[in-house]
Design a binder for these strands. Structure first.
Length: 826
RNA sequence: GGGCGAGUGGUGGAAUGGCAUACACGAUGGACUUAAAAUCCAUUGAUCGCAAGGUUGUGAGGGUUCGACUCCCUCCUCGCCCACCA
């Protein structure tokens, strides 16, 4: 009897070659089958991948293979998000050109994808750092420029002194650089922005159409866009022509305004403090708090501080003058940078007023307990009844919001207004390793776009990678010097490059015509294949990448380049693999090498364990021991086929016994239950872990069926074993193919028909009926599965154990649940 | 501070109103073996009992229900996202 391990090395090599030859993953443009575009987020090329990375691709590959088996014309492309900081940082450190290290890493990664058995249509590969790709990233920039959606402005930006570059807000974590953890400072630079804020409302509205996105992700996007409805109110500055506009969502509290605060970066601030007696103090305050802003925007808990400007502003509803302060708690970029302060009904204002002895005036009464301004411990921010509010007294505050807004609009004191937290997208990077921004600066003609026919603007090859606060492209004279496209005079190129999120905001369009040098994508193909049917990636991209991609697609839609408004119909976000409770990463030293494991156990074992470890949307803790279990299981299935092949091959037995015995019925029932379970998991939840465990149960059932004697036969057994092999194929493709061949099939298992669940097989002849008394399990009886309620009740009352528990009493009620459970109430 | 999610054996996890702990890992005992590996068999929430069997048990407390891991309320802990957004 053969007791060797299954020869995974030979098997895996054999089938990989076969898939390559038969083009299993090549999308067929002329196929009549239904299309299915399955997209994995394309990775940044980093050197050695671990099992945590593997999980992403194994999940995606299982979906792809399942859909192929279900008869779809599947498009499963792969590419590389190949521009970015790490390669450039490495170049600074060790002198290796980013292009070389990146292309090397890509080579390694392709090999690793292959080693996981993850198949892609490699003819469609896109690599964002190649001119054939970034030419069109630049084209996208020019489209936005043409539409007035790309503009330049001086803006305070997060600056990492160590990386010598600008960071997006989201790359700043706890005031520190996401990559190098140095303290981030603010710095004013001329930057290119994309006007994503023009699309705020549409990006918000269309979230509702994304029914197959996780609620969590939609909510995160919604909060990020941050729509709030309110009123903008103009306050006149006394003894001045200046008008300060502020925004509030709580216009019902307008009569409770006791002071106003403006941000330390408010545009009118210089003018306002011109004649102030404490001018020095104010200026000192402004300087100090500017420094705080960087840390502040990042979340550090900074105490509220402020300074009086010597000015007063007039409340337009009651003409009352209130003091004007400069404070560190007003967000410059949001609203108008000026806030009407209502200490009685806003916690922040309350704290500030307490600290500086400013007035507190109650204008909304808490219906539950009367309020007294002098005794308040905290602000009352709930609804209530209007008091001290002139003609609005007595109204419920919710109603007052409407009435006061109406009143203000009628009297032109204020105007309803919607604000968003969403900011424009800063795309400039003072970096080499990115797509150059295709713009030219001419002294005579000003800013000029590069002509589309002159694209791509190629990155120069010879560059010194010494950071000096400006883009390294500055040191490449052959790059910088250019003729103005308008007047042909001497001009200079833009030396900044684009944020890599621009590269990744349209790559899914390029896969349909990756080598096309006439356009960024083929309109017909793209309209046929998009939206993407299934997008799979990490939840860390829930906000930025997905929002940017949605934005770019909407812009392209508006310009008539594509016929759809949303890029991704269905989204699945997987969890990450942890080790010792933290994310697997090289710097933390807790990586589990995927290559080593594959060398020892083969790809299928690694795949099976990875999928079995937990539901894929959840984070999962890696345990090396569990791999053994997956390995044992595969050997167990393998033996099932090997041993019986030695014993004569029961799968060839066509006739044999009819499926009449109890044993046969049980096996058939289990087989069809497993089909149902696996199919549901694949279609609905991607819960591969439960799909696999149900297949394990079926294998256990098969072993029980044949007992220890080999050479068992019969149609039921044949069906069960075939089912196991087919159902396993999406998860462990190599061994499944080999076993499928051993079962005498000439065609690939991926051409096999996915089994249908025969519902009649799910009902056994007799079923075991659990009996509860007052909800507690007290007995079990055997009953025919076709038995009616009355018959079941009769059987239950005849059961001796039941009678023992009834102690002669008559049950008040007998509840039969779906013919599967009985509960007696006594 | 706000929002979202989660809390089940020694471990990963299963069950979304109906037999709690499927499936797997680990552990213990046994068979086979000179031995080991592999494989197979048995046991494995806690607790009482020689046993049949009982009691108890899904973060804590309360509620709804014939019946609650599941629904509702209060609280605790952890995780993630956002965060002085007026």
């Amino acid at each position: 009897m053969a007791q060797e391990f299954y020869p995974f090395k030979d098997i895996e090599a054999k089938w990989r070659k076969r898939w390559e030859e038969t083009g299993l993953f090549k999308m067929d443009q002329n196929s009549l089958k239904k299309k299915y575009y399955c997209l994995m987020m394309f990775p940044y090329p980093s050197a050695a991948l671990h099992v945590g990375h593997g999980r992403n691709y194994i999940i995606g590959d299982s979906v792809v293979r399942y859909k192929i088996m279900r008869g779809y014309n599947v498009l499963s492309p792969m590419g590389f998000d190949a521009f970015g900081l790490p390669a450039e940082n490495a170049a600074i450190k060790n002198g290796i050109h980013p292009e070389i290290s990146t292309l090397n890493n890509i080579k390694t990664m392709r090999r690793q994808f292959d080693s996981w058995g993850a198949g892609y249509d490699w003819d469609r590969e896109v690599v964002s750092c190649l001119p054939e790709y970034y030419k069109w990233t630049q084209w996208i920039f020019l489209q936005l420029y043409k539409k007035g959606l790309a503009y330049k402005k001086k803006a305070p930006v997060n600056w990492c002194p160590s990386c010598q570059t600008v960071l997006a807000n989201e790359q700043v974590i706890d005031g520190k650089c996401e990559r190098c953890s140095s303290q981030v400072i603010l710095r004013d630079l001329e930057q290119w922005f994309f006007k994503i804020t023009d699309y705020s409302q549409r990006l918000l509205n269309d979230l509702e159409s994304l029914e197959d996105w996780p609620e969590r992700v939609k909510l995160m996007q919604k909060n990020w866009i941050g729509r709030s409805q309110g009123v903008e109110i103009d306050f006149k500055v006394r003894d001045s022509d200046i008008i300060l506009r502020c925004f509030t969502t709580r216009v019902d509290t307008i009569y409770g305004v006791t002071y106003m605060v403006i941000s330390n970066e408010h545009p009118a601030i210089r003018e306002l403090v011109k004649g102030a007696s404490n001018k020095k103090e104010i200026e000192k305050f402004i300087e100090e708090t500017k420094k705080e802003n960087a840390a502040d925007r990042i979340g550090a808990d900074i105490e509220k501080r402020g300074v009086f400007t010597g000015r007063f502003v007039v409340n337009p509803v009651n003409n009352k003058a209130v003091p004007l302060w400069v404070g560190n708690y007003v967000v410059t970029e949001y609203g108008t940078g000026a806030v009407m302060a209502v200490p009685a009904h806003d916690q922040r204002d309350f704290e500030f007023a307490k600290k500086y002895g400013l007035g507190i005036e109650v204008v909304i009464d808490n219906p539950k307990e009367p309020m007294d301004a002098s005794k308040m411990k905290e602000a009352y921010a709930e609804e209530g009844v209007m008091v001290n509010s002139g003609k609005f007294n007595g109204l419920p505050s919710l109603e007052a919001i409407r009435k006061i807004a109406d009143f203000m609009e009628e009297n032109k004191i204020g105007k309803r207004k919607v604000h968003y937290k969403l900011r424009d997208w800063l795309i400039s990077r003072q970096r080499y390793w990115g797509a150059p921004i295709p713009m030219i600066y001419c002294d005579k003609c000003g800013i000029q776009p590069v002509d589309e026919k002159d694209l791509p603007v190629l990155l120069p090859r010879n560059i010194k990678f010494k950071p000096h606060g400006e883009s390294p492209l500055k040191d490449a004279p052959e790059f910088v010097k250019i003729k103005c496209p308008k007047c042909s005079g001497n001009a200079k190129r833009e030396i900044d490059t684009m944020d890599t999120f621009v590269d990744s905001s349209w790559y899914f369009l390029r896969y349909l015509s990756p080598r096309d040098d006439k356009g960024p994508f083929n309109k017909d193909l793209v309209n046929k294949w998009l939206p993407v049917d299934q997008y799979i990636g990490g939840v860390e991209h829930a906000i930025l990448h997905l929002l940017y991609s949605r934005f770019i697609v909407k812009v392209l839609y508006d310009m008539g380049h594509v016929g759809f408004k949303e890029p991704f119909a269905k989204l699945f976000t997987q969890g990450m693999i942890t080790k010792n409770g933290i994310k697997m990463s090289k710097s933390r030293g807790n990586v589990v090498s995927s290559d080593d494991l594959i060398e020892k156990y083969g790809a299928d074992t690694v795949r099976l364990y990875t999928l079995f470890i937990s539901p894929p949307e959840k984070d999962a803790e890696w345990g090396d021991r569990g791999v053994e279990g997956a390995w044992r299981f595969l050997n167990r299935v393998w033996r099932l086929i090997e041993d019986n092949a030695h014993a004569g091959g029961w799968w060839s037995v066509e006739g044999g016994e009819k499926d009449s015995t109890e044993k046969d019925k049980k096996l058939k029932q289990k087989t069809h239950y497993t089909i149902k379970k696996v199919t549901e998991d694949m279609e609905e939840t991607f819960h591969f872990n439960t799909a696999i465990s149900s297949i394990m149960e079926l294998v256990n059932e098969i072993y029980e069926y044949i007992g220890l004697k080999h050479g068992a036969s019969g149609p039921q057994l044949k069906e069960a074993v075939q089912t196991v092999v087919i159902l396993l194929a999406p998860f462990v493709p190599h061994i499944a193919e080999e076993m499928w061949e051993k079962l005498g099939n000439k065609e690939s298992v991926f051409n096999a028909e996915w089994p249908e669940c025969d519902k009649s097989a799910l009902n056994q002849s007799t079923i075991e009926l659990p009996i509860q008394i007052n909800g507690k399990l007290r007995s079990k009886i055997k009953a025919p599965s076709a038995a009616g309620e009355d018959e079941i009740k009769k059987l239950v009352l005849n059961d001796s154990l039941v009678n023992k528990w009834l102690e002669g009493k008559e049950p008040k009620k007998i509840i039969v649940v779906k013919g599967k459970l009985v509960n007696l109430v006594i």
